[in-house]
Design a protein around this nucleic acid. Structure first.
Lengths: 142, 142
DNA sequence: CAATAGTTTAGAATTATTATAATGTAGATT
DNA sequence: AATCTACATTATAATAATTCTAAACTATTG
Protein backbone atom coordinates (compact mmCIF):
# COMPACT_ATOMS: atom_id res chain seq x y z
CA UNK A 1 0.00 0.00 0.00
CA UNK A 2 1.86 3.02 -1.17
CA UNK A 3 -1.18 5.08 -0.25
CA UNK A 4 0.62 6.67 2.65
CA UNK A 5 3.11 8.25 0.26
CA UNK A 6 0.30 10.50 -0.88
CA UNK A 7 -0.32 11.60 2.65
CA UNK A 8 3.35 12.27 3.27
CA UNK A 9 3.47 14.48 0.23
CA UNK A 10 0.19 16.13 0.97
CA UNK A 11 1.37 16.98 4.46
CA UNK A 12 4.66 18.32 3.19
CA UNK A 13 2.91 20.43 0.60
CA UNK A 14 1.13 22.46 3.20
CA UNK A 15 4.07 22.61 5.55
CA UNK A 16 3.12 19.96 8.06
CA UNK A 17 5.80 17.49 9.05
CA UNK A 18 4.71 14.02 8.03
CA UNK A 19 4.90 12.32 11.39
CA UNK A 20 3.79 8.78 12.15
CA UNK A 21 0.73 10.12 13.98
CA UNK A 22 -0.38 12.53 11.30
CA UNK A 23 -0.11 9.86 8.62
CA UNK A 24 -2.12 7.47 10.75
CA UNK A 25 -4.82 10.08 11.18
CA UNK A 26 -4.82 10.79 7.43
CA UNK A 27 -5.37 7.11 6.81
CA UNK A 28 -8.35 6.96 9.12
CA UNK A 29 -9.85 10.13 7.68
CA UNK A 30 -9.12 9.89 3.99
CA UNK A 31 -8.64 6.24 3.04
CA UNK A 32 -12.32 5.80 2.32
CA UNK A 33 -14.91 6.12 -0.38
CA UNK A 34 -17.06 8.88 0.99
CA UNK A 35 -16.40 11.96 3.07
CA UNK A 36 -17.83 11.83 6.57
CA UNK A 37 -18.43 13.71 9.81
CA UNK A 38 -16.84 13.05 13.15
CA UNK A 39 -16.09 14.44 16.56
CA UNK A 40 -12.66 14.29 18.16
CA UNK A 41 -14.04 11.57 20.35
CA UNK A 42 -15.17 9.53 17.38
CA UNK A 43 -11.74 9.87 15.84
CA UNK A 44 -9.89 8.76 18.95
CA UNK A 45 -12.17 5.73 19.15
CA UNK A 46 -11.62 4.86 15.50
CA UNK A 47 -7.87 5.06 15.92
CA UNK A 48 -7.80 2.87 18.96
CA UNK A 49 -10.47 0.39 17.90
CA UNK A 50 -10.11 0.05 14.16
CA UNK A 51 -6.39 0.69 13.84
CA UNK A 52 -5.38 -0.68 17.20
CA UNK A 53 -3.13 2.25 17.67
CA UNK A 54 -2.76 4.69 20.53
CA UNK A 55 -2.33 8.37 19.76
CA UNK A 56 -2.43 10.79 22.62
CA UNK A 57 -5.61 12.83 22.90
CA UNK A 58 -3.62 16.06 22.81
CA UNK A 59 -2.03 14.99 19.56
CA UNK A 60 -5.36 14.20 18.02
CA UNK A 61 -6.60 17.66 18.95
CA UNK A 62 -3.44 19.31 17.65
CA UNK A 63 -3.48 17.37 14.42
CA UNK A 64 -7.14 17.90 13.70
CA UNK A 65 -6.74 21.61 14.26
CA UNK A 66 -3.63 21.72 12.12
CA UNK A 67 -5.57 19.94 9.37
CA UNK A 68 -8.43 22.35 9.74
CA UNK A 69 -6.16 25.36 9.47
CA UNK A 70 -4.64 23.93 6.33
CA UNK A 71 -7.96 23.14 4.74
CA UNK A 72 -7.92 19.37 5.12
CA UNK A 73 -10.91 19.50 7.41
CA UNK A 74 -13.85 21.76 7.97
CA UNK A 75 -15.40 22.46 11.33
CA UNK A 76 -19.17 22.48 11.58
CA UNK A 77 -21.13 24.17 14.34
CA UNK A 78 -24.40 22.62 15.27
CA UNK A 79 -24.34 21.63 18.78
CA UNK A 80 -22.70 23.87 21.20
CA UNK A 81 -20.40 21.83 23.42
CA UNK A 82 -19.40 19.44 20.68
CA UNK A 83 -17.19 20.12 17.67
CA UNK A 84 -18.03 18.27 14.50
CA UNK A 85 -15.56 18.04 11.67
CA UNK A 86 -16.18 17.20 8.06
CA UNK A 87 -13.71 15.63 5.64
CA UNK A 88 -15.73 17.25 2.87
CA UNK A 89 -14.11 20.67 2.82
CA UNK A 90 -16.09 22.10 -0.06
CA UNK A 91 -18.84 24.61 0.70
CA UNK A 92 -22.02 22.69 1.30
CA UNK A 93 -25.08 22.65 3.50
CA UNK A 94 -26.25 20.19 6.12
CA UNK A 95 -29.21 18.48 7.57
CA UNK A 96 -29.00 17.73 11.25
CA UNK A 97 -31.16 14.98 12.64
CA UNK A 98 -32.12 16.12 16.11
CA UNK A 99 -33.25 12.63 17.09
CA UNK A 100 -30.06 10.78 16.27
CA UNK A 101 -27.65 13.74 16.29
CA UNK A 102 -26.57 12.69 12.85
CA UNK A 103 -25.22 15.15 10.30
CA UNK A 104 -26.17 14.64 6.66
CA UNK A 105 -24.59 16.44 3.72
CA UNK A 106 -26.69 18.28 1.22
CA UNK A 107 -25.99 18.02 -2.47
CA UNK A 108 -25.71 21.17 -4.52
CA UNK A 109 -29.09 20.39 -5.98
CA UNK A 110 -30.83 20.14 -2.63
CA UNK A 111 -30.83 23.84 -1.90
CA UNK A 112 -30.91 26.74 -4.34
CA UNK A 113 -28.09 29.23 -4.35
CA UNK A 114 -28.50 31.63 -1.44
CA UNK A 115 -28.61 35.27 -2.39
CA UNK A 116 -27.35 37.65 0.30
CA UNK A 117 -28.59 41.18 -0.16
CA UNK A 118 -27.02 42.69 2.92
CA UNK A 119 -23.54 44.09 2.74
CA UNK A 120 -21.42 44.81 5.78
CA UNK A 121 -18.93 47.55 5.04
CA UNK A 122 -15.31 46.52 5.21
CA UNK A 123 -16.26 42.88 5.55
CA UNK A 124 -16.24 40.15 3.00
CA UNK A 125 -18.30 37.01 3.07
CA UNK A 126 -16.25 33.96 3.95
CA UNK A 127 -19.01 31.40 3.79
CA UNK A 128 -22.74 30.95 3.58
CA UNK A 129 -24.07 27.83 5.14
CA UNK A 130 -27.50 26.47 5.73
CA UNK A 131 -28.38 24.13 8.53
CA UNK A 132 -31.69 22.33 8.25
CA UNK A 133 -32.77 20.76 11.49
CA UNK A 134 -35.07 17.82 11.12
CA UNK A 135 -36.76 15.52 13.59
CA UNK A 136 -39.18 12.64 13.68
CA UNK A 137 -42.52 13.49 12.18
CA UNK A 138 -44.64 12.12 14.98
CA UNK A 139 -42.60 13.50 17.84
CA UNK A 140 -43.28 16.63 19.86
CA UNK A 141 -40.99 19.18 18.34
CA UNK A 142 -38.19 20.66 20.34
CA UNK B 1 -42.35 50.89 37.16
CA UNK B 2 -45.07 48.32 36.85
CA UNK B 3 -43.09 46.73 34.04
CA UNK B 4 -42.38 43.64 36.08
CA UNK B 5 -46.06 42.84 36.19
CA UNK B 6 -45.81 42.00 32.52
CA UNK B 7 -43.03 39.57 33.23
CA UNK B 8 -44.92 37.97 36.07
CA UNK B 9 -47.88 37.40 33.82
CA UNK B 10 -45.77 36.31 30.90
CA UNK B 11 -44.03 33.75 33.06
CA UNK B 12 -47.32 32.52 34.47
CA UNK B 13 -48.77 32.17 31.02
CA UNK B 14 -46.26 29.53 30.03
CA UNK B 15 -46.33 27.82 33.38
CA UNK B 16 -43.14 29.16 34.89
CA UNK B 17 -43.31 30.35 38.46
CA UNK B 18 -42.49 34.03 38.58
CA UNK B 19 -39.67 33.94 41.05
CA UNK B 20 -37.52 36.89 42.06
CA UNK B 21 -34.65 35.54 39.98
CA UNK B 22 -36.66 34.85 36.85
CA UNK B 23 -38.17 38.32 36.94
CA UNK B 24 -34.74 39.85 37.36
CA UNK B 25 -33.46 37.92 34.37
CA UNK B 26 -36.49 38.98 32.35
CA UNK B 27 -35.70 42.59 33.16
CA UNK B 28 -32.15 42.26 31.99
CA UNK B 29 -33.16 40.47 28.82
CA UNK B 30 -36.35 42.18 27.76
CA UNK B 31 -36.40 45.71 29.22
CA UNK B 32 -34.68 47.12 26.17
CA UNK B 33 -35.33 48.54 22.76
CA UNK B 34 -33.73 45.91 20.61
CA UNK B 35 -33.31 42.17 20.81
CA UNK B 36 -29.76 41.00 21.38
CA UNK B 37 -27.42 38.05 21.65
CA UNK B 38 -25.60 36.82 24.70
CA UNK B 39 -23.80 33.94 26.32
CA UNK B 40 -24.55 32.67 29.80
CA UNK B 41 -21.36 34.37 30.89
CA UNK B 42 -22.46 37.70 29.48
CA UNK B 43 -25.75 37.37 31.28
CA UNK B 44 -24.19 36.59 34.63
CA UNK B 45 -21.92 39.61 34.23
CA UNK B 46 -24.80 41.89 33.33
CA UNK B 47 -26.77 40.77 36.34
CA UNK B 48 -23.93 41.30 38.74
CA UNK B 49 -22.55 44.49 37.20
CA UNK B 50 -25.53 46.36 35.89
CA UNK B 51 -28.11 45.19 38.36
CA UNK B 52 -25.84 44.67 41.29
CA UNK B 53 -27.53 41.45 42.02
CA UNK B 54 -26.23 37.98 42.64
CA UNK B 55 -27.97 35.04 41.08
CA UNK B 56 -26.34 31.64 41.30
CA UNK B 57 -24.75 30.38 38.12
CA UNK B 58 -26.82 27.22 38.27
CA UNK B 59 -29.99 29.28 38.44
CA UNK B 60 -28.97 31.34 35.44
CA UNK B 61 -28.41 28.15 33.47
CA UNK B 62 -31.69 26.65 34.64
CA UNK B 63 -33.62 29.79 33.92
CA UNK B 64 -32.14 30.39 30.51
CA UNK B 65 -32.90 26.84 29.54
CA UNK B 66 -36.40 27.09 30.93
CA UNK B 67 -36.90 30.25 28.87
CA UNK B 68 -35.54 28.54 25.82
CA UNK B 69 -37.87 25.60 26.23
CA UNK B 70 -40.82 27.95 26.56
CA UNK B 71 -39.86 30.00 23.56
CA UNK B 72 -38.61 33.12 25.33
CA UNK B 73 -35.13 32.56 23.99
CA UNK B 74 -33.54 30.92 21.02
CA UNK B 75 -30.24 29.11 21.06
CA UNK B 76 -27.79 29.75 18.23
CA UNK B 77 -24.91 27.50 17.27
CA UNK B 78 -21.89 29.15 15.80
CA UNK B 79 -18.99 28.49 17.89
CA UNK B 80 -18.71 25.10 19.34
CA UNK B 81 -17.81 25.40 23.02
CA UNK B 82 -19.94 28.47 23.55
CA UNK B 83 -23.71 28.72 23.57
CA UNK B 84 -25.19 31.91 22.22
CA UNK B 85 -28.77 32.86 22.96
CA UNK B 86 -30.97 35.32 21.14
CA UNK B 87 -33.87 37.27 22.58
CA UNK B 88 -35.23 37.48 19.06
CA UNK B 89 -37.11 34.19 18.91
CA UNK B 90 -38.53 34.58 15.43
CA UNK B 91 -36.99 32.55 12.61
CA UNK B 92 -34.17 34.59 11.18
CA UNK B 93 -30.66 34.27 9.83
CA UNK B 94 -27.35 35.58 11.10
CA UNK B 95 -24.11 37.12 10.13
CA UNK B 96 -21.16 36.18 12.27
CA UNK B 97 -18.20 38.49 12.35
CA UNK B 98 -15.18 36.26 12.67
CA UNK B 99 -12.95 39.15 13.71
CA UNK B 100 -15.01 40.40 16.62
CA UNK B 101 -17.06 37.25 17.28
CA UNK B 102 -20.15 39.39 17.01
CA UNK B 103 -23.49 38.03 15.88
CA UNK B 104 -25.66 40.22 13.68
CA UNK B 105 -29.29 39.56 12.85
CA UNK B 106 -30.49 39.43 9.29
CA UNK B 107 -33.73 41.06 8.29
CA UNK B 108 -36.28 39.11 6.29
CA UNK B 109 -35.30 41.14 3.28
CA UNK B 110 -31.60 40.31 3.53
CA UNK B 111 -31.92 36.73 2.35
CA UNK B 112 -34.47 35.20 0.03
CA UNK B 113 -36.62 32.37 1.23
CA UNK B 114 -34.64 29.14 1.21
CA UNK B 115 -36.11 26.36 -0.83
CA UNK B 116 -35.26 22.87 0.38
CA UNK B 117 -35.65 20.25 -2.27
CA UNK B 118 -34.46 17.29 -0.28
CA UNK B 119 -36.90 15.31 1.76
CA UNK B 120 -35.90 12.90 4.50
CA UNK B 121 -38.53 10.25 4.95
CA UNK B 122 -40.26 10.26 8.31
CA UNK B 123 -38.62 13.52 9.28
CA UNK B 124 -40.06 16.98 9.29
CA UNK B 125 -38.10 20.20 9.02
CA UNK B 126 -37.88 22.03 12.31
CA UNK B 127 -35.85 24.98 11.15
CA UNK B 128 -33.79 26.31 8.29
CA UNK B 129 -31.09 28.73 9.25
CA UNK B 130 -28.38 30.46 7.34
CA UNK B 131 -25.12 31.55 8.87
CA UNK B 132 -23.05 34.00 6.87
CA UNK B 133 -19.50 34.26 8.14
CA UNK B 134 -17.81 37.53 7.40
CA UNK B 135 -14.37 38.90 8.13
CA UNK B 136 -12.26 41.91 7.47
CA UNK B 137 -11.74 42.56 3.79
CA UNK B 138 -7.99 43.06 3.93
CA UNK B 139 -7.22 40.19 6.22
CA UNK B 140 -6.01 36.73 5.33
CA UNK B 141 -9.10 34.66 5.45
CA UNK B 142 -9.46 31.97 8.03
C1' DC C 1 25.71 12.68 13.04
C1' DA C 2 24.94 16.73 15.85
C1' DA C 3 22.01 20.72 16.24
C1' DT C 4 17.51 22.56 16.30
C1' DA C 5 13.05 23.34 15.54
C1' DG C 6 8.88 21.34 15.52
C1' DT C 7 6.04 17.20 17.59
C1' DT C 8 4.17 13.99 20.82
C1' DT C 9 2.94 12.78 25.23
C1' DA C 10 0.88 12.26 29.96
C1' DG C 11 -1.07 14.69 32.94
C1' DA C 12 -2.55 19.08 34.97
C1' DA C 13 -5.40 23.11 34.24
C1' DT C 14 -9.22 25.49 32.36
C1' DT C 15 -13.82 26.30 30.82
C1' DA C 16 -18.55 25.38 30.03
C1' DT C 17 -22.07 22.89 31.67
C1' DT C 18 -24.83 19.63 34.54
C1' DA C 19 -25.86 17.10 38.83
C1' DT C 20 -26.67 16.93 43.83
C1' DA C 21 -28.70 17.64 47.95
C1' DA C 22 -29.88 20.98 51.31
C1' DT C 23 -32.47 25.08 51.98
C1' DG C 24 -35.88 28.38 50.49
C1' DT C 25 -40.25 30.05 48.47
C1' DA C 26 -44.65 30.52 45.54
C1' DG C 27 -49.15 29.26 45.41
C1' DA C 28 -52.75 26.23 46.85
C1' DT C 29 -55.29 24.47 50.87
C1' DT C 30 -56.98 24.95 54.95
C1' DA D 1 -52.89 34.06 57.82
C1' DA D 2 -50.67 29.49 58.96
C1' DT D 3 -49.49 25.26 56.71
C1' DC D 4 -48.37 22.27 53.12
C1' DT D 5 -46.22 20.80 48.98
C1' DA D 6 -44.17 21.04 44.77
C1' DC D 7 -41.08 23.47 42.54
C1' DA D 8 -36.76 26.76 42.72
C1' DT D 9 -32.51 28.35 44.21
C1' DT D 10 -28.12 27.75 45.94
C1' DA D 11 -23.29 26.37 46.81
C1' DT D 12 -20.65 22.97 45.67
C1' DA D 13 -19.15 18.81 43.47
C1' DA D 14 -18.95 16.31 39.22
C1' DT D 15 -18.40 15.82 34.32
C1' DA D 16 -16.97 16.77 29.67
C1' DA D 17 -14.58 19.04 26.15
C1' DT D 18 -10.66 21.34 25.31
C1' DT D 19 -6.18 23.61 26.07
C1' DC D 20 -1.79 24.10 28.45
C1' DT D 21 2.73 22.54 30.12
C1' DA D 22 7.02 20.83 30.24
C1' DA D 23 9.67 16.89 29.35
C1' DA D 24 10.93 13.44 26.03
C1' DC D 25 11.18 12.53 21.17
C1' DT D 26 11.99 12.89 16.11
C1' DA D 27 12.28 14.82 11.41
C1' DT D 28 14.98 17.77 8.85
C1' DT D 29 19.11 20.83 8.14
C1' DG D 30 23.76 21.67 7.85
Amino acid sequence: MPKNCNFIEKLREVGLRPTKQRIKICEVLYNREKTFHFTINDLVKMISEKMNEKISLATVYNTVHAFEKKGYLKEISIDSHKSYFDTNTSAHHHFFDEDTHELIDCDESDIDKINIRKNITGKKINSVEVLVRVASDNQTQK
